[in-house]
Design a binder for these strands. Structure first.
Length: 418
RNA sequence: GGGUAGGUACCGAAGCGGUUAAACGGGGCAGACUGUAAAUCUGCUGAGCUCAGCUCUACGGAGGUUCGAAUCCUUCCCUGCCCA
């Protein structure tokens, strides 16, 4: 038999880090009923499978979902395979390309794999919204859209801005919030989680649930974590993200690159810092004798540990110190063998063939700017050649390392020598 | 349906017949510096080559005028706004 923590215990944990809970008293009531009837709440989190690469910004809300699971509630992850075909309006004036159902399905699977790095697999249900949205007839859609008005939809900030500034809004984009709201009605969610940018959509869910005669969900919003630049929100398009699938080394380095004033935020929302630890770090950062770098290291280690384990966090730290403090080379460097007709190759070509540079022009620039090192020796002449008969260590910029060697092949019949 | 304003490189935005691979800003990359992959400063930022030079591709698409077009003309596509 399940035992739920007390109301206060639940609320303390649920409130921590949340921006808004609307309306909070309804949540309290729901939890009270849940404890009394010993019945878990249904917690909804929708995800957009058009972008299957999760980053730490997405993690904020997943961590919250996990807390609900730990409290004994039932998590439903909705993969928006159907809505993915529409694409959530991003506020950008470009309407995004639509994906096919198959594509969104594949992405959804990838998404799930990553999400379960944070979510528990117990008390987790995964639903695809094509299940109900795909079944709706045009009549159903009209019925649904009759329950909401254009003016209400235009209240949404990004619609509003686009409308006022004369940028296009397609009708299907307007329909998106309604589709998402339909999900809530379909699964009877008690609580829906989302980033603060989702507030509008989440609230529409309440209205639509009421319109279909079910108890409205409570919405809980989490902040949007800024990216490594500390300015824009974390997003792939700003290239300021830390992906779940980043290597420990990259993850660590990226955390180390955040501005000092972001340390606490990353610690709380990215590293899952407890209230107690956050307080402690806050005090430390206030003291002059404390080096903010140490707080960053702690945050970085903890974040790496979530995705790669504690040991990986320690190793990443060691590597980082090696590369940047001691300007040394990392322990593990990727190796690559190139098929060549001659062991002596122009360095520029090698850079392009190994994808260290995207084009020969770019390779030339890198060399001329002194960004390329072979076996520790800086090469300044873009015409330089490199002998690949033994393994060479090429370094491009501060943090790209590659061991390259040549693999002689016969041009005529493609046979390998060696 | 009528009128009108637009569509420029990764993004924003100049240019409105030649000296424009296209000002400026952001972003990105490299170098110096640093606790730091932060901040700051400097440089670079379409591609290929027999590389202080040459060639090709590029200003929504397709044609045309011209010695020469992102810039002028025709036409098509896309978008905003106003009127109906």
């Amino acid at each position: 038999m399940l035992m739920f923590p007390t109301l206060n215990e639940q609320m303390d944990l649920i409130r921590s880090g949340a921006v808004e809970i609307i309306p909070e008293d309804e949540l309290i009531k729901k939890i009270e009923v849940s404890i009394k009837k010993n019945k878990p709440l249904i917690i909804k989190l929708g995800c957009d499978p058009s972008k299957p690469d999760l980053h730490i910004g997405h993690a904020v809300v997943l961590h919250k979902m996990r807390q609900f699971q730990d409290l004994g509630h039932h998590a439903i992850l909705i993969i928006g395979d159907f809505t993915g075909m529409i694409g959530d309006p991003t506020g950008k004036n470009v309407t995004r390309p639509h994906l096919t159902l198959e594509e969104t399905r594949i992405n959804g699977q990838t998404y799930l794999e990553q999400a379960t790095m944070i979510l528990s697999k117990d008390r987790l249900e995964v639903r695809y919204n094509s299940e109900w949205l795909g079944e709706m007839s045009f009549r159903d859609v009209i019925e649904l859209s009759a329950k909401y008005t254009v003016a209400q939809l235009l209240e949404r900030d990004d619609f509003n801005i686009r409308y006022k500034s004369g940028q296009p809004i397609s009708v299907h984009e307007l329909l998106y919030p309604l589709a998402q709201a339909m999900d809530s009605a379909a699964i009877n969610s008690d609580v829906e989680l989302g980033g603060t940018d989702q507030k509008f959509n989440l609230l529409v869910g309440r209205e639509i649930q009421k319109a279909y005669g079910t108890e409205p969900q409570v919405i809980l919003t989490m902040p949007l974590l800024e990216g490594t630049d500390g300015v824009e929100k974390m997003s792939k398009s700003y290239n300021n993200y830390i992906a779940f699938n980043d290597t420990p080394r990259d993850m660590f380095g990226k955390v180390m690159s955040i501005p000092d004033n972001m340390i606490l935020r990353f610690f709380r929302y990215g590293a899952r810092g407890t209230e107690k630890d956050i307080k402690e770090m806050e005090e430390q950062l206030k003291s002059d004798s404390f080096n903010p770098r140490d707080a960053k290291v702690r945050t970085a280690k903890q974040i790496v540990a979530i995705y790669h384990g504690v040991e990986a966090g320690e190793n990443a730290l060691a590597e980082f110190e090696k590369i940047f403090k001691n300007k040394d080379v990392p322990d593990e460097i990727e190796e690559m063998r190139l098929d060549v007709e001659s062991q002596v190759q122009p360095l520029m070509d090698v850079l392009v063939l190994t994808s260290l540079a995207p084009s020969k022009k770019e390779a030339k620039r890198l060399i001329e700017q002194g960004g390329v090192t072979v076996d520790g020796e800086r090469i300044g002449d873009f015409r330089a050649e490199i002998d690949l008969s033994k393994e060479r260590l090429i370094k491009v910029g501060k943090r790209k390392f590659l061991k390259v060697s040549g693999n002689l092949i016969d041009k005529i019949n493609g046979k390998m020598y060696q």
